[in-house]
């Protein structure tokens, strides 16, 4: 994606992410997050959750994947700002949508508003800022 080709309001292709138990556990461990609520269903229930749930590092990782997947490998991520809502539980699907919310021509930065919604409601809302430097395609 070239900076010049991006327009404010442009929509990103929707991305549906199946939330399997294996994926929720594997992503937590990939970030060295060993909190039991992310892998041990019994302890998660004891702590008041209905099941294990996705950790925040993974929410960050998935919004990065969603935006750079659209923008291409040349994009450099300059900011990820997210607000968390409904937990991502196994068996659900998170559908990610996004649109370009701002452009900064001097810095060649593009801000994308993102939203990941599961069956309960919005899991993550926020913005990802990327830089598309000159010549990057």
């Amino acid at each position: 994606m070239r900076y010049e080709d991006v327009t404010v309001g442009q929509e990103l292709p929707e991305l549906a992410i199946p939330l399997t138990r294996t994926m929720i556990v594997a992503t937590a461990l990939a970030g060295r997050d060993y909190q039991d609520v992310h892998h041990d269903p019994d302890l998660a229930v004891q702590r008041g959750s209905k099941d294990v749930f996705m950790n925040i590092l993974t929410s960050n990782g998935l919004v990065e994947r969603f935006v750079t997947g659209w923008a291409g490998p040349a994009a450099r991520v300059k900011g990820i700002k997210i607000r968390l809502g409904a937990p991502n539980y196994p068996g659900d699907t998170m559908t990610m949508t996004g649109s370009v919310s701002a452009k900064d021509d001097d810095a060649r930065r593009v801000e994308v508003a993102v939203r990941g919604v599961n069956a309960i409601g919005p899991h993550v809302t926020g913005t990802v800022t990327i830089e598309l430097s000159e010549g990057a395609a």
Partner: peptide
């Protein structure tokens, strides 16, 4: 893409400083 070589995902920042198991 103009980089010197492979880079880490930006979102991994926190992962590099986790306390470990």
């Amino acid at each position: 893409t103009g980089r010197d070589g492979v880079v880490a995902p930006a979102s991994m920042m926190q992962a590099w400083t986790m306390r470990g198991y």
